[in-house]
Simulated assay, not measured.
Amino acid sequence: MPDTPADLNPQTHRQVAKLVGPAQAAEMMALLRETLVRLGDMPEQEFAGPSGLALVHRLKSESGLMGFDRLAQACEAVDTAGARGAVPPQDLRSLRVAIASALATADALGEAEP
């Protein structure tokens, strides 16, 4: 079984904030958090359906860009399986766990900002 990536790659996260500036980085985090909340609250049937999978596809890019490696990997697994037509339940469960963990990390980052 491959190693589970860290929830947040702090180096990537800092680099993005440095490149785009603090205000843009905060806006990007707010959008990421909004998507996390939306997916986290989504009923299972919708989560595994077209609208949920479209959000997962978008979240894959957003999370990877912001340094949320575990979340990006879980999104990739679901996105790839969804493109093939069927997402295994264990991939959906792993993504739900990654979403909850990333949301807690995003909230902690928000509290740490001045």
Rank of each mutant, 00 (worst) to 15 (best):
Q11I: 13
D3G: 12
P88F: 09
G64D: 07
G52T: 06
R93V: 13
Q45Y: 00
D7I: 07
P2S: 12
G52N: 07
A112N: 09
E46W: 00
V20R: 02
E44K: 08
R70H: 12
M28K: 09
P89E: 11
A54M: 11
T105L: 07
L53C: 06
G85I: 03
A17N: 08
A48P: 01
D91N: 08
L55Q: 15
E27D: 15
E113S: 09
L59A: 05
G40L: 07
L19E: 14
A108N: 10
Q45P: 10
R84E: 15
K60P: 03
T35W: 02
D3N: 13
R84C: 01
A81S: 13
P2W: 02
D107Q: 14
E44G: 04
A25E: 07
G52P: 08
L92K: 03
A106F: 03
F68W: 06
G67V: 06
G82H: 02
A23S: 06
G49S: 15
Q90F: 00
A100M: 02
H57E: 13
R58N: 14
P50H: 13
P43S: 04
R84W: 03
G21W: 02
A25L: 02
M66A: 10
R14G: 07
D7K: 00
P5T: 01
Q73S: 08
S63Q: 12
G40P: 06
R14Y: 08
V87D: 12
M1C: 12
E113A: 14
L39V: 06
P89M: 04
D79K: 06
K60M: 09
L36Y: 08
C75V: 04
F47C: 07
A83E: 15
S94E: 12
Q24Y: 04
P22G: 07
P2G: 05
V97S: 09
L31K: 14
Q24L: 05
Q11H: 11
R33M: 05
E76T: 10
S61V: 00
E27R: 12
L92R: 01
V78T: 11
A112C: 05
